[in-house]
Simulated assay, not measured.
Amino acid sequence: MIGVLVVDDDVRVARVNAAYVAKVPGFRVVGVAHTAAEALTALTAPEPAVDLVLLDHHLPDGNGLAVVRELRARGLQTDVIMVTAARDVATVQAAMRHGALQYLVKPFGFAGLRAKLEAYAALRRTLDGGGEAEQAEVDRIFGALSAGSVVPDLPKGHSPTTAELVRQVLLAADGPLSAQEIAERAGVSRQTAQRYLKLLERTGRVRLSLKYGETGRPEHRYAWAGPAAAR
């Protein structure tokens, strides 16, 4: 189980985010903090172990970036996903430079956070394997961390947020998924998932394969084609 510390100055938001985390298989909430001081105390305590911090930027006694800087200064390499309403480029850039793995802008729903957590879990599985990485594995590692737009120029009526959700679901998967499975994991309708999958397939981002059963039509299965195809 991946231990998560939820840090947010708003008690209600912290409670909601903790409930979201608890719903994702493989994750458990090991603590909740509402200030920078509380966060640092929890992160430096020997137990319970914190693997990942969902870290708000605006805190009453400082900010999230200061917490990350202090963690690194103490030699702690706890993973961080910024979860904040701060969307100015300077803050985003500083978060990247201090080692935040992801940056999730408020407001967001369960599907948005779940996609980030599942991508993080996939990243840990890849890294825990150790050894040397071929280019495909390197691409997968960096692909799990990427928070950029899936398609530079989306057609009218398509949402970059939904496209990113579909991408994160595919990146987190151990193998090809059906449109229904993708819809359930992304928290969208099957029709919406199919619409985005067709677009991503046409633009080379998604690879389509067919799974043949004993009877009936073959099932369409989808997998992310890799960061190289998304350039």
Rank of each mutant, 00 (worst) to 15 (best):
A186C: 11
A186N: 05
A186M: 06
A186Q: 07
G187E: 00
G187I: 03
G187T: 06
G187W: 01
G187K: 04
V188C: 13
V188I: 15
V188F: 04
V188Q: 04
V188S: 06
V188E: 02
V188R: 02
S189Q: 10
S189A: 09
S189H: 00
S189D: 12
S189I: 12
S189W: 08
R190T: 13
R190V: 09
R190L: 05
R190F: 00
Q191S: 13
Q191D: 13
Q191G: 07
Q191F: 01
Q191K: 15
T192S: 11
T192K: 05
T192W: 08
A193C: 04
Q194K: 07
Q194R: 13
Q194L: 10
Q194T: 12
Q194Y: 08
R195L: 15
R195I: 14
R195Q: 15
Y196L: 12
L197D: 01
K198Q: 09
K198F: 01
K198T: 12
L199N: 08
L199C: 10
L199W: 03
L199F: 06
L199V: 13
L199Y: 06
L199I: 15
L200F: 10
L200K: 03
L200W: 00
E201N: 02
E201K: 11
E201G: 06
E201C: 06
E201D: 09
R202W: 00
R202F: 07
R202H: 08
R202Q: 14
T203C: 11
T203V: 15
G204V: 15
G204T: 14
G204N: 14
G204D: 15
V206F: 01
V206W: 05
V206Q: 01
V206M: 08
V206I: 15
R207Q: 06
R207Y: 04
L208D: 00
L208A: 03
L208S: 01
S209I: 00
S209Q: 01
S209N: 02
L210A: 08
L210F: 07
L210N: 02
L210S: 07
L210C: 07
L210T: 03
K211A: 13
K211P: 01
K211H: 06
Y212D: 03
Y212I: 05
Y212H: 01
Y212L: 00
Y212W: 05
Y212P: 00
G213A: 09
G213T: 12
G213E: 07
G213L: 11
G213K: 06
G213I: 08
E214K: 05
E214A: 08
E214D: 14
T215S: 08
T215E: 15
T215Q: 12
T215L: 13
T215G: 09
G216E: 12
G216S: 12
G216W: 09
R217P: 03
R217T: 14
R217K: 13
R217Y: 01
R217I: 11
R217D: 14
P218F: 10
P218Q: 05
P218H: 11
